[in-house]
Nucleic acid binder design. Structure first.
Length: 374
DNA sequence: CCACATGATTCCTA
DNA sequence: TAGGAATCATGTGG
């Protein structure tokens, strides 16, 4: 039935027998020891028929390679990678660590007008430290991956080049292999980027977005704010400059100053009786300071908000205990020059309506202390 | 644990 | 857009 395959059919082509001979030798190599194989390899390399055989193999390879080409490539995870990259860039992770304004000074003077909206002094610096940690880890890992990728690529390329002496390996094939390696490594990189993004997000939610996480202000901050508040009781609307100054002095942010004044005004108005004692303390305090420094109403000595002007009501309130009486007095006082700014302001803000535009905090610093004009 | 104090946020208005 | 009012959530003292 089945005739055994003929060992060597005599093909007409002149190189027929030679080819099969070489092939047989190749096959035999696997059965031999390493040294033997090495010697055989060398012999094969020097064989006069080697170039011919090689070209045949190349031809076959060329044909099969086409079908392989179609299979590879065409996977666009680029979109996600771009997203991750953008995210990391936006979070400041991708950048190699940017130095922010003055190191230690940044803690003391955190009032940074026009700064980042989340500039919450200590907490923010803590956040930055953690972010910096993440950044460092990210970059070191990235570097490791890149190095590994490079090493592996070089290794594989060398291997293929080495092999190209034995079998047909086109430069294109090497290129393709390098591409495969790169895509594998970039998949790993993507994972790294993804987990870094997650870490940053967690950090954000823990620090910056923890809205309700609050800390009571330092004593100094509270004092600075209270002093300003009670010395400008007739118009407790600090200008932007005044806020900045208060923020600087209290080691808090401008928005915190705004919050504080907003809360204070409303709580004071709601329960003046409760704040009476506090008012006495601060007005008394400012009074002494006034005599000491000689700049009433400006115990915070904020240059941009020269609330000089021996504010009528303030001068009076500075006598201490007569606080409520003074309020009444102030509101009843006829205003010289027609515009009873202070009574207006006072009447307004305590009466539940916002201050008139004439005394609006948006005005120049001088207006803030409109009570100082009398 | 509770009540109160207080900083922060949200919504609304002028 | 700043400020008022209400509310939330945390800190703090008893």
């Amino acid at each position: 039935m089945d005739a055994p395959p003929r060992p060597a059919p005599p093909p007409p082509a002149p190189r027929g027998p030679a080819t099969s001979d070489v092939l047989q030798q190749i096959m035999a190599i696997t059965d031999q020891s390493l040294d033997e194989a090495q010697a055989r390899k060398h012999a094969l390399n020097c064989h006069r028929m080697k170039p011919a055989l090689f070209s045949v193999l190349c031809e076959i390879k060329e044909k099969t390679a086409v079908s392989i080409h179609g299979i590879q490539e065409e996977d666009p995870p680029h979109a996600q990678l771009t997203r991750l990259d953008n995210m990391l860039l936006a979070e400041g992770v991708s950048r190699p660590e940017k130095r922010e304004r003055g190191g230690p000074a940044a803690v003391a003077g955190t009032a940074t007008p026009g700064g980042c909206p989340n500039d919450n002094s200590i907490e923010h610096s803590d956040y930055r430290a953690k972010l910096s940690q993440i950044r460092q880890i990210y970059h070191s890992e990235l570097e490791k991956y890149e190095q590994a990728c490079h090493e592996f690529t070089t290794h594989v390329t060398n291997l293929l080049r080495e092999q190209s002496r034995m079998r047909p390996v086109s430069p294109k094939e090497i290129e393709r292999m390098v591409g495969v390696i790169h895509s594998k490594f970039s998949a790993i990189q993507m994972q790294l980027k993804q987990s870094t993004c997650e870490a940053v997000m967690t950090l954000r939610s823990r620090f910056l977005d923890a809205r309700r996480k609050r800390q009571n202000f330092s004593k100094q901050a509270t004092e600075v704010l209270n002093e300003y508040f009670y010395s400008h009781l007739s118009n407790p609307y600090p200008s932007e400059e005044a806020k900045e100054e208060l923020a600087r002095k209290g080691g808090i942010t401008v928005s915190q100053v705004s919050n504080w004044f907003g809360n204070k005004r409303i709580r004071y108005k709601k329960n003046m009786r409760k704040f009476q004692e506090e008012a006495t303390i601060y007005t008394g305090k400012t009074a002494t300071e006034t005599t000491e420094v000689g700049v009433p109403g400006n115990h915070t000595s904020c240059p941009p908000t020269p609330s000089y002007g021996l504010s009528g009501p303030f001068t009076l309130t500075s006598t201490g205990g007569a606080f409520l009486t003074l309020q009444t007095l102030a509101s009843l006082r006829p205003s010289p020059g027609g515009a009873s700014l202070q009574s207006q302001a006072r009447g307004c803000w305590q009466g539940g309506t916002p201050p008139l535009s004439t005394t609006s905090p948006a005005g120049d610093p001088g207006n803030v202390t409109s009570d100082a004009f009398h």
